[in-house]
Design a protein around this nucleic acid. Sequence first.
DNA 1: ACCTGAACACCGTTCAAGT
DNA 2: ACCTGAACACCGTTCAAGT
Lengths: 227, 227
Amino acid sequence: MVKKARTPSRRDEALTREQIIDAAIELLDASGEAGLTLRALSARLATGPGAIYGHIADKSDLLTAACDVLVARTLDEAPPSAAPDATIRALALALFDAIDAHPWIGSALGAAPGRLPMVRILDRVGRQVRALGVPEAAQWRATSALLGYILGIGGQNAANGQLAREQGLDRTDFLDSMAATWAMLDPAEYPFAHAIAAQMREHDDRADFLAGIDLLLAGLAAARRKR
Amino acid sequence: MVKKARTPSRRDEALTREQIIDAAIELLDASGEAGLTLRALSARLATGPGAIYGHIADKSDLLTAACDVLVARTLDEAPPSAAPDATIRALALALFDAIDAHPWIGSALGAAPGRLPMVRILDRVGRQVRALGVPEAAQWRATSALLGYILGIGGQNAANGQLAREQGLDRTDFLDSMAATWAMLDPAEYPFAHAIAAQMREHDDRADFLAGIDLLLAGLAAARRKR
DNA sequence: ACCTGAACACCGTTCAAGT
DNA sequence: ACCTGAACACCGTTCAAGT
């Protein structure tokens, strides 16, 4: 009694919000933030641009939703650990890597303060700050310092990646050309930037990122000892 | 022998890059990043949109240049101090306030890695890191941690400000509505965000920002002691 | 040499018309 | 009820034509 071949009205199944978000992620991963266009999206979904507005409020809503899917996945996959500071390092590193792999997440997070993806991160990091023994009155400060740092570095890294992609260079060549530009700066006006250019070539973004997290954790530990 | 009234060809004086940048800053301050439009800009300068392209490469070049003017001014006006850590605090706070007053600087900085405004900040902060006695091999790490933090918090703050403006709320009402949203979250799924919502209402962004800088400086001091 | 502004190739979003 | 896609009101950018 099963119909072998129902005649579909226009598409086999109704358009869902989830389908739209998945297609948006594919577009964003393939060609960056500029690649997410309502027209490109509707073409990929074999529909008209208007159909999408039945499932999302607007483009920024879609971008935040796409970001949230990846953030939720990233946080879920971060390896848990017994020690809160090790867990914070693992969470931070997982987010760093996710933003590195999908640079558009960086700007999407920056544009969505207080929205769900940010709340997910806040909550996961905040729970570990609490477990670290930071007194309740200082928990907000400590957590938002960690979040600011993670998003700040992540955002810069994402911008580097986007720029490198636009110029068709890989990461190393891109950093090399940046270092070369800095090396040409007037040493009298920009002494530090001029001098540091040499270090740019041999540095490790990921290790430097973690070193900053450790700096913040060390600061928290110092405050705890003083208490 | 001075001509009292030269007949101007079409405008009294030739268009300059500086005029364009100043007009862009006015537009950005008046109506945010969305307010900077080549059409609005050319209307304000009493010319056609094409004329502007003789003086700037493209819109992102213009945004970076506008950002650079404000960053240079901000750094120049930051009160100098004898102690390097006090100078770092002053620089950070000056940048925080500048981004708060001109939220578009936040995203402009994020979009311009390695460009002049970022180099200015890197250099000024880096010189103080050096003066702090951080060993040369660790100077890049320490400086980029500070920069990441400053831009990260600045960016979030800017996003808050932009969002608040779009909703026609002042800062307090905006944070209140955000806290209210968080308070409604499922405490089982988001225990920290749910609990921290109450602290949102009474916190001081500026003081919290500085506390994070102090955390980083404390971490640097701890590393120095261990050396 | 520099400005002018129409024109081009796009956007996000809406909405009458279809099914 | 949901999709369709033409249409609207914009963009950044270019370039022949002017002065």
